[in-house]
Write a protein that binds this DNA or RNA. Sequence first.
DNA 1: ATGCAAGCGGACGGGGTTCGTCCGCATGGT
DNA 2: ACCATGCGGACGAACCCCGTCCGCTTGCAT
Lengths: 209, 209
Amino acid sequence: MPDLDVTTDVRADARRNRRQLIVAAREAIASRGLDVSALDIATAAGVGVGTLYRRFGTKDSLLDAVVVGLYDEMLDSAQECLRVEDPWEGLTRFVTELAGAHRDSRGVAEVTAACDTVPTPEIAERTTALQDAVIRLTDRAHAAGALRADVTWQDVMIGSRAGLDTDHCLGVDAGPDGWRRVITLLLDGMRAPGYTPLSGAAPHLHDNS
Amino acid sequence: MPDLDVTTDVRADARRNRRQLIVAAREAIASRGLDVSALDIATAAGVGVGTLYRRFGTKDSLLDAVVVGLYDEMLDSAQECLRVEDPWEGLTRFVTELAGAHRDSRGVAEVTAACDTVPTPEIAERTTALQDAVIRLTDRAHAAGALRADVTWQDVMIGSRAGLDTDHCLGVDAGPDGWRRVITLLLDGMRAPGYTPLSGAAPHLHDNS
DNA sequence: ATGCAAGCGGACGGGGTTCGTCCGCATGGT
DNA sequence: ACCATGCGGACGAACCCCGTCCGCTTGCAT
């Protein structure tokens, strides 16, 4: 929950509205994804759309503010997992939390999957930092012999999306925590020693050229 | 590829247009999901929208025809996998093919995930048949001691969606066959003996009351 | 208490998309 | 050669969304 800005050159109600808009936008992005309408956000915040544009200039500017906050939370989580003693425990915890973040906010799932759109510098920087963290978590697990040698850090990254669209299938209901079962099984599959040789190229950094 | 209907009481061009519409709808549904516009389908089929409505009465009627065909293909695949000698091989093959069907057609992914909308009788019937097949595949694998005892047939069903939204994550590109790595790792996690006790309730049949 | 700058709501114009119909024209088949 | 059947696509109606603008309100300093 960032944005404790103590900007004092605006009226108190303006500052309050700004905060309410961020909160509302966060929730709206979580449940409906990044293409929420400005009206939806404003209404949820209890203000008019005019106020949204007055406070943030542009709808995207508001969305960006929210998304950067969400990235910072993922980064915090990664740093914390790097401090966990047991490398395997640290890795599984982070994968689970990253998967949870993706599920908690449809917007997060949409942004982390974006590859055609050019990210803002803030997001690009945090993306790299998250990659670094996953690389470190993976290296630790490899070094400890806990993670299959043929599983790369990119596999780990990709795997944290595996629980995204797994709520229902052909009449079966996974329940509210169903994604945890999926992630658990996936992590078990990643745990050394592995059974099935992985075929195909490993996931690689996205080349946007 | 069903619909070899030899209806002869319509003009030849009408019959041809009908077939082209089904083909175009199939492709459109695959790439854009179930809410393709009628205009998109008609254009891809090389006809006017009027022809679509004349041939199928309603857009949904056309979509239903396509979706039922897709379900039949999944059922064929299931029957084939049940004929595979090795139970584990049969199970993994079906999970992989079901996952592939979900990825090949965004529409399939949308329909199999639907739980609020009441399915047509044709779909309901085929859904039950698919459940039966998965139950049999799972039972065989359990009996052979190849599948973790705590993995249910519902887990198997849900797991076949795990590769759905796993193409990109935080700058990482899984590549065109990345989903196969995810599914492979997941299946390895399902393979006996398991490591991590599964927590939470197992997925259950969806109760639409 | 009062005055005014700052802020507010929400109606509005403009632009976009989709559905399903309808009618003047074309064409398959006898 | 004729006409019933079929065709294309323009069209009206119903949505939804963005960002602006203006008349009204309110915080706050005096």
